[in-house]
Measured scan of single mutants.
Amino acid sequence: SEEEIREAFRVFDKDGNGYISAADLRHVMTNLGEKLTDEEVDEMIREADIDGDGQVNYEDFVQMMTA
């Protein structure tokens, strides 16, 4: 549901600035027990970053979650 997606976005957007940065993503993945290299984190950001601004905004996140 849209509310679940919004809630998930809030979990990833640690600093609440409306964007998921590589640092935000790394933090959440580490908490989930996933040890990722910087390259892996950057690749995840690139794949999710639809508009190419280097971070994942809510619209990018929705597209990723509903793809």
Rank of each mutant, 00 (worst) to 15 (best):
34 E>W: 15
13 D>G: 00
1 S>I: 09
3 E>H: 13
4 E>R: 13
11 V>E: 14
47 E>L: 15
24 D>S: 05
26 R>M: 03
43 E>R: 15
36 L>C: 08
38 D>L: 09
55 Q>I: 09
14 K>E: 09
33 G>T: 11
7 E>W: 03
63 Q>G: 06
49 D>P: 06
31 N>H: 11
42 D>N: 12
63 Q>P: 03
44 M>W: 11
8 A>P: 01
59 E>C: 04
18 G>L: 01
10 R>D: 04
32 L>M: 08
44 M>A: 04
21 S>V: 03
66 T>E: 04
66 T>R: 08
64 M>D: 03
22 A>E: 08
60 D>K: 15
33 G>V: 11
42 D>T: 10
34 E>I: 15
14 K>P: 13
15 D>A: 07
43 E>L: 14
37 T>W: 05
18 G>C: 02
27 H>Y: 13
61 F>V: 14
31 N>D: 08
2 E>M: 12
50 I>C: 06
50 I>G: 08
15 D>Y: 07
45 I>E: 01
1 S>M: 10
57 N>I: 05
27 H>N: 11
46 R>Q: 08
47 E>K: 15
13 D>Y: 00
34 E>F: 15
3 E>I: 10
13 D>P: 00
49 D>R: 15
59 E>N: 12
36 L>V: 08
54 G>F: 04
24 D>H: 07
31 N>P: 01
6 R>I: 07
11 V>L: 10
33 G>M: 12
3 E>T: 09
64 M>F: 09
35 K>T: 09
17 N>I: 05
27 H>E: 10
11 V>F: 09
25 L>K: 00
23 A>W: 02
42 D>Q: 11
66 T>P: 03
40 E>L: 10
56 V>G: 01
30 T>F: 08
67 A>L: 04
25 L>Y: 02
50 I>N: 07
47 E>H: 15
18 G>M: 02
45 I>D: 00
62 V>K: 04
66 T>L: 13
21 S>W: 04
29 M>W: 03
44 M>S: 02
43 E>Y: 15
16 G>H: 06
16 G>W: 03
36 L>P: 04
33 G>Y: 14
9 F>Y: 01
39 E>R: 12
56 V>H: 02
37 T>A: 06
41 V>H: 04
21 S>T: 09
30 T>P: 01
55 Q>Y: 15
11 V>D: 08
35 K>D: 09
46 R>N: 08
26 R>S: 03
19 Y>F: 11
52 G>F: 10
64 M>Y: 07
41 V>K: 04
25 L>G: 01
15 D>K: 06
24 D>V: 04
30 T>Y: 10
30 T>A: 14
35 K>E: 09
42 D>S: 10
56 V>R: 01
59 E>H: 08
20 I>D: 00
56 V>E: 00
47 E>R: 15
10 R>P: 01
12 F>A: 04
33 G>E: 04
16 G>R: 04
28 V>A: 11
8 A>Q: 09
41 V>T: 04
65 M>A: 04
11 V>C: 08
41 V>G: 01
26 R>N: 03
66 T>S: 09
10 R>F: 04
32 L>G: 02
14 K>S: 09
18 G>K: 02
48 A>P: 01
17 N>F: 07
7 E>S: 07
4 E>H: 09
35 K>Y: 12
51 D>Q: 10
28 V>K: 00
14 K>Q: 10
35 K>H: 14
32 L>R: 03
9 F>E: 00
38 D>M: 11
55 Q>W: 12
51 D>L: 09
11 V>R: 13
38 D>F: 07
9 F>V: 02
9 F>A: 03
50 I>V: 13
48 A>E: 04
63 Q>V: 07
12 F>P: 00
57 N>L: 11
41 V>M: 13
6 R>D: 02
56 V>L: 08
20 I>W: 00
43 E>N: 14
55 Q>A: 07
32 L>H: 04
47 E>C: 15
49 D>V: 13
32 L>A: 03
40 E>M: 13
41 V>W: 14
22 A>K: 13
22 A>H: 09
57 N>S: 13
64 M>L: 11
59 E>D: 05
4 E>L: 10
58 Y>G: 01
19 Y>E: 02
66 T>N: 07
39 E>Q: 10
22 A>M: 13
61 F>M: 07
7 E>K: 10
40 E>V: 10
37 T>C: 06
22 A>S: 06
58 Y>D: 00
21 S>G: 04
3 E>M: 10
24 D>K: 03
59 E>F: 08
25 L>W: 03
54 G>E: 05
30 T>H: 13
60 D>S: 15
37 T>E: 04
36 L>M: 11
57 N>W: 15
2 E>A: 13
19 Y>G: 01
44 M>I: 10
60 D>N: 14
1 S>D: 05
39 E>S: 10
21 S>Y: 06
6 R>K: 08
